[in-house]
Amino acid sequence: MINIESRTAKIVRFIFLGIWLIISLFPLYWIVITSLKPAGAVFRYPLQYWPAQFSLENYINIFSKAMFGRFMINSLIVALAAGVIATLISLLASYVLARFEFRNKTAVLMAFLVTQMIPAFIALGPLYLMMVKLKLVDNLLGLMLIYIAVCIPFSTIMLRGFFANIPDALEEAAMIDGCSRIGALFRVVVPVMKPGIIAAFLFNFINCWNELFLSATLMNKDANKTIPTALNGFITTFNIDWGSMSAAAVLTILPTMLMFALASRHIIQGLTAGAIKG
C-alpha cells in the first residue's frame, strides 16, 4: 500500500477486528463450555461462564450411548471419497469448459448453474426410489454417488475460473515438449492450480460433511448414519440433552474447522487467482 494509514484509522481497524473476533468465537466458546459442564449444571442458574467443575461426561455419553465414533467414520469416508472424486471429475469438466469451444457450451453452463437454484427437497422422493432400484438405499456408496453429483456443478464452475487465469501457453509448451494433453494438464497446469484445487476440494468436503437432508432420507440404520443425521436424531428424540448435543456439536465442528484453519491461506490464495467467476 502506498498511503500510510493514520493512527486513528489503525485503532478503529483493530477495534473492529477485535469485536468481530469476539462475536465469531463466542458461540464456539459457549458450546465448548456447555459440553464440558457436568450433567445438571447446564440448567443451573445463574449461568456459569466458567464451570465450577469440568467433566467429560457428555463426551463419554455420546460415544457409549450413541455410536458417535461410527458416525464420524461414516462421515469421514463419504466426505473424503465424494470430495476427492467430485474434485477430480470437476477438474476434467472445467478444463474442457475453459479451454475448448463447442456448441451448447452456454447451455451446459446454465444447466450447471440452475442446479444451485433447485431446492434439494424436490428430488428427495424420486432419488429414494431410484436408490431402492439400484439397491443403494441405506448404503454409504449410494450417498457418496449422490454427493458427487451434488458437488460437481459448483466446483466445476469454480475451477473453470481458475483455469481462465492460467495462460494456455503453459500447456502448449508442455505439449510441444511431447506431453499428451492429460500429461500436460496434470504435469503443468495442476501444480500451478494447487490452491484452487485445494479450495474446491475443501468446499466439496465441507458440503458433504455437513449435508443433512439427503443423508436423513437415504440412511436408515444407525450403523450407516452420518454425523448431521445423528445430530438431527439427538435433538428430536425425547429430551433435548443440551450437554450431549454440545459435545457432539464440538466434535462435528472440530475437523472442518481444523482443515479450514490449515488451508485458509490456500483458499484465499486460490480465490485470489481465480476470484469467483460465478
Binding site: 471419497a81 454409504l140 456408496l141 492429460i182 500429461g183 496434470f186
Partner: peptide, 25 residues
Amino acid sequence: MKFTRKVAAGVGVALACVTVLAGCS
C-alpha cells in the same frame, strides 16, 4: 509420464475403495 501414472493410481485407489464399500455394505 510419471504424473499420469500417479493420477491413474490415485483414481484406481479411489475406485477400489468404492468397490470395497459396495461389497461390505
